[in-house]
């Protein structure tokens, strides 16, 4: 782990065509994206444009109709624990406690480690997300926000090569969402796993990520523009909210979503945001 891999994830002209009763529907067309190791990118776009579809293809839970995906130099086929996923609802198994839910994956991935070490692992991650006293609770006894914390702990505990987040905070109210964003950043600071996250929340995208990938409207969605977020890490919400660049970035994303998302990008390379602040 000396030098970060400049090509952790390469998506090369991904297509997704669903067979529908009305004939084949091209949802995603020629989707290109390259991510560095340790990068945090968000995918933003209107609802139904195909964000989840792209993420599910990367996760291996949905077949790639056409195109290539290369993860850490290897073609990845099918789902696996090397890609941690957090969905909008954390899909914990309701018959297991928070501890057991995380342990299920830990047992699988660290099968050579001793029992003690595995227990420590689970306890560590659940404590870091703030659930030290709720480890033995069942999902039904936890609030929505707490369940999502378990989901995040489970994903990080497996130390995947990539983390895929599909609107992980979409069902939470805005204040709980802010809290969880900090929980996520806190963990991510300790272990910079390459992360691709889907969101429709502009503030969330700016606060969390290094790059915001804007998708054009579906069908036949592709990458519209890419915006670099220049803020230093570790990020402090208060400082960012007072930074004048923050509102410019916010404005840029909102304008894109409201006015330009239906436009096709010119063929060739993906345009970067034409802003001075991208280089700042």
């Amino acid at each position: 782990m000396s030098l970060p891999n400049p090509k952790m994830l390469e998506l090369d002209r991904l297509w997704k065509i669903y067979d529908t009763p009305k004939g084949p529907a091209t949802i995603v067309k020629d989707f290109n994206l390259r991510m560095k190791e340790g990068e945090f990118a968000t995918l933003i776009g209107h609802s139904g444009c195909g964000k989840s579809t792209v993420l599910m293809m990367v996760a291996g839970l949905s077949d790639i109709t056409r195109g290539n995906m290369i993860l850490a130099g290897r073609e990845a086929v099918g789902p696996g624990p090397d890609r941690g996923i957090v969905f909008q609802s954390p899909c914990l198994l309701p018959w297991m406690t928070a501890f057991e839910n995380v342990m299920l994956g830990v047992e699988q991935v660290y099968y050579t480690a001793s029992k003690d070490e595995r227990r420590q692992m689970v306890e560590y991650y659940l404590s870091v997300v703030g659930l030290a006293d709720a480890m033995q609770k069942y999902p039904s006894e936890l609030s929505q926000g707490m369940r999502q914390r378990v989901g995040i702990a489970r994903a990080f505990a497996l130390q995947p090569k990539m983390l895929l987040l599909d609107e992980p905070f979409g069902m939470l109210d805005s204040l709980t969402r802010y809290e969880l964003q900090d929980v996520l950043l806190n963990l991510w600071r300790k272990n910079r796993i390459t992360t691709l996250m889907v969101t429709h929340d502009v503030d969330e995208a700016i606060y969390l990520s290094d790059r915001v990938v804007m998708m054009t409207d579906g069908p036949e969605a592709e990458v519209g523009e890419i915006l670099h977020i220049p803020f230093e890490r570790p990020r402090v919400r208060k400082e960012i909210m007072e930074d004048p660049r923050y509102y410019e970035l916010r404005e840029h994303l909102i304008t894109y979503l409201n006015e330009r998302s239906h436009l096709r990008p010119s063929r060739g390379e993906t345009p970067n945001a034409p802003l001075s602040l991208a280089a700042a």
Partner: peptide
């Protein structure tokens, strides 16, 4: 399907 996805992703 969510539960089955958990199993699939962890390669249980």
């Amino acid at each position: 399907q969510d539960y089955l996805n958990v199993a699939k992703v962890l390669k249980l």
